[in-house]
Design a protein around this nucleic acid. Structure first.
Length: 205
DNA sequence: CACGCGATTGCCT
DNA sequence: GGCAATCGCGTGC
């Protein structure tokens, strides 16, 4: 079942934690269904978070981040793209970056979209490429889009898992904040923190 | 040990 | 609004 607006319109940290092991679904124009379990996310807050694109207030390049909860904020980076889910009430400016998924449906198609590269969906730019998400999806709303959305998953359908936290990856400011969540031991999680969890990781369940 | 990747900024239009 | 980009680090060859 698709996640509704009230899921996204909550404190960003709660949304980030709860996005783990939800199913990200992309319906291609030809009807092909691509999907994957979210196994790594990062939170970018509206207040006191220098790593967040919203840190300096609403500008021409981050306006989507201030739209309603559930809106997809896609930003360009090094000729590729990363996708975020907008959280909190409209106008706040906070989001959750989806950094990795474990492929479920349409793996062959994802591989083709990735240019047959081995790393399919590990890393935010890679998973965008594998899910055929580009700038045209900036502003798309996961609550009612026919092209992309996030579904609830049944706990009995996948093995028990443990959530861990760590510092965010690839940022120059706000490194002390523990705003990254990932599924412990999952092979699709990016970065070394899969192994050490920054020494202060917490088992949440 | 080579290669690919990537939470931002500046510049051009 | 759109595009191009640097270099440190993890991955995999």
């Amino acid at each position: 079942m698709r996640l509704a607006s009230d899921f996204y319109q909550r404190p960003t940290i709660a949304v980030a934690e709860n996005l783990l092991v939800k199913l990200l679904v992309r319906q291609l124009e030809d009807g092909t269904r691509l999907s994957g379990l979210i196994v790594e996310v990062e939170a970018y807050l509206s207040d006191g978070d220098p790593a967040s694109h919203s840190f300096r207030g609403l500008g021409r390049k981050n306006a989507t981040m201030f739209q309603s909860a559930g809106t997809l904020y896609v930003y360009p980076i090094h000729a590729k793209f990363c996708m975020n889910v907008v959280t909190e009430p409209e106008g706040i400016g906070a989001a959750v970056l989806i950094r990795a998924i474990e492929p479920v449906d349409g793996i062959d198609r994802m591989r083709a979209l990735r240019g047959n590269s081995l790393s399919l969906t590990t890393g935010p730019a890679r998973l965008c490429q594998a899910m055929a998400v580009d700038r045209a999806f900036d502003g798309e709303n996961l609550v009612d889009s026919q092209r992309i959305w996030i579904e609830e998953t049944s706990p009995e359908k996948h093995a028990p898992w443990v959530s861990r936290t760590s510092s965010r990856i690839g940022i120059s400011q706000g490194q002390e904040k523990q705003l990254r969540w990932f599924v412990d031991g999952n092979r699709f999680v990016s970065g070394c923190a899969r192994d050490h969890s920054n020494g202060r990781g917490q088992s949440l369940v």
